[in-house]
Design a protein around this nucleic acid. Structure first.
Length: 408
DNA sequence: AGCACA
């Protein structure tokens, strides 16, 4: 009795200039509402996609008689009101004005809020989203996040306007991209899950193949530099980009090849093997979700071997912090030679150099039983001479970017 | 198929 006391039967409801429409298709847009209602009068306000199923709407006419005309028309019409072929049920709203019609999602803007329903987190990659929305124009930026899902069903997109006018993308990651800034750094903390928690205990969820490998480095007794990784992974083909980062107290790296075939060979060959003898720097490999790494061209934690050599030379002549050369000498010349093991040299002193004369150099990896140096996989096993127990991976094998070595 | 916001 605390309610208005209005009868609940539609034919006896008090008329209102606001009509309540239901059984609309959830895709219904304002224009379709207007098309349906404007023959009966002037519409001053609408609200669509109302309700849990987004299949209800309100339309407000300028005066009551227009609303009455519409209700009485369809009450006696042999043709029901329809939107997209669905019969729409129309009755007077129990309110007399549409309030607050323009929610944040209704105000047009250049940023869309997209809700992807009926999928597990990560099932729709940022690249897929990019591809879909690129059909309508250049996509500047994408930021993704997860919210508690209250819907289950197939993969549906629900799209409204965001109140944002710009997205502040700080890092490239599997969650966010800025297509207007190709030099955005890769977020070291949002790149990958540690040790592939994505693989369920049932082992059903298989990661899709990728040109980018995620390497977790276990028991990292010695420093693993970009150059070390480049040398190791170049055994299977051109390495395009490398990024090293810390994750959960461990060290991981992303290694990008130009094709999945090469990545697959490298993954199978190196999985479980150690870079150094004695079980040091054991590699665990999986496919990354990345398809293209966006890394700093030259830093102590990343390298892009695809940039033109001219750019490289410019960098050489203006050494900057990325080189991070320690004062320790020892790497001028001899260690780049085929027999370049330098006993006692600290791994940390093995610093990348871009001196072109190192091209002839070959790293001398120590082979341990069961390490990747076994002949079974390496097309360039000769490049890995067993020379010393001391990890003596030189920067050798590092060709100038743009001329990566092919060991095939 | 039965009344919105945030």
């Amino acid at each position: 009795m605390s309610t208005s006391g209005q009868p609940q039967f539609r034919y006896t409801q008090t008329p209102s200039k606001v009509l309540h429409l239901r059984n609309l298709p959830w895709e219904c847009i304002e224009e379709e509402l207007i098309e349906l209602c404007k023959p009966f009068g002037k519409i001053v306000n609408t609200k669509c996609n109302v309700g849990a199923n987004r299949n209800q709407a309100f339309v407000e006419f300028t005066d009551l008689n227009q609303a009455i005309n519409m209700v009485t028309y369809y009450a006696s019409s042999s043709e029901p009101a329809q939107v997209r072929g669905k019969t729409v049920y129309i009755q007077y709203s129990n309110r007399h004005e549409i309030v607050n019609n323009k929610g944040p999602g209704d105000v047009p803007g250049n940023v869309l809020l997209v809700t992807i329903e009926g999928v597990e987190a990560g099932d729709v990659s940022i690249d897929v989203i990019h591809l879909v929305f690129s059909a309508f124009g250049f996509v500047h930026k994408i930021a993704t996040f997860e919210k508690a899902a209250d819907h289950v069903g197939s993969c549906h997109l629900r799209i409204s306007y965001s109140a944002h006018t710009d997205l502040n993308i700080k890092f490239q990651s599997h969650r966010s991209r800025d297509y207007t800034n190709p030099y955005l750094p890769v977020n070291p903390t949002a790149i990958e899950g540690f040790a592939q928690p994505a693989v369920g205990p049932d082992g059903k969820k298989k990661e899709p193949e990728s040109t980018v490998l995620l390497a977790s480095i276990e028991n990292m007794q010695y420093a693993v530099t970009v150059d070390v990784l480049h040398t190791v992974f170049s055994a299977f083909g051109t390495v395009q980009k490398i990024a090293i980062f810390e994750k959960n107290g461990g060290t991981q790296a992303l290694i990008q090849y130009p094709d999945v075939t090469t990545a697959a060979v490298a993954k199978d060959a190196l999985e479980g093997h150690c870079i150094y003898d004695g079980g040091y720097c054991k590699l665990h490999l999986s496919y990354s979700r990345h398809t293209d790494l966006n890394v700093k061209a030259f830093s102590d934690k990343s390298r892009d071997y695809t940039i033109p050599e001219s750019s490289l030379l410019a960098m050489q002549q203006a050494p900057t912090a990325w080189e991070n050369r320690p004062p320790a000498p020892m790497y001028q010349g001899s260690e780049f030679g085929a027999g370049g093991a330098v006993p006692g040299q600290a791994p940390g002193g093995q610093v990348p150099s871009w001196d072109p004369n190192m091209q002839a150099g070959r790293p001398n990896f120590v082979s341990a039983p069961g390490t990747f140096c076994s002949q079974t996989y390496a097309p360039s096993a000769s490049a890995y001479a067993v020379a010393s127990h001391q990890p003596n991976v030189g920067p050798g094998g590092a060709s100038p970017p743009g001329q990566p070595p092919y060991y095939r």
